[in-house]
Amino acid sequence: MSNQATVPFKGTAEQEAKLLEVIAKHKDQAGALISVLHEAQDIYGYLPIEVQSIIAKGLGVTLAEVYGVVTFYTQFSLNPKGEYQISVCLGTACYVKGSGDIINKVKEILGIDVDGCTSDGKYSLTATRCIGACGLAPVMTVNDDVYGRLVVDDVPGIIAKY
């Protein structure tokens, strides 16, 4: 049932020391939680349970409250970014040209959901809004590479390149 990150946590002692410093800096401020979450995400790249637990304990708030805030704001991520970050545009033009099917194919091949990361840390998937390449709709990107005018059958070949 649990919605924890699919990638094993690889936090270092240095990262934890840094996070504890951040917590100490903000501890007595009103609304400290959001500032701490921002800085924690800068340190770790994402906010897995291990990080949220340190924050909850450090600020004296419940883990449920921390998780509630993390899932409320879209800028916080429960999963790390993969070595290859795949983005599929779900903007209007791409969507009417079938990007919904494209993203479903990516999910199927990688076995992850939107905002997920494969357990080997290689691929992560996000759905983006319009990236300004409507002429190429439907569009997906892998890191800085752009692939346009896609059909579902193109997807396996693109992923296989990485």
Partner: peptide, 21 residues
């Protein structure tokens, strides 16, 4: 404090951290 509100908008729900039971 094991339960709180999660997510937002139409997906808002009450539950435990990380969808635990």
């Amino acid at each position: 404090g094991v339960i709180d509100t999660m997510e937002r908008g139409f997906k808002t729900k009450v539950g435990c951290a990380f969808e635990a039971s």
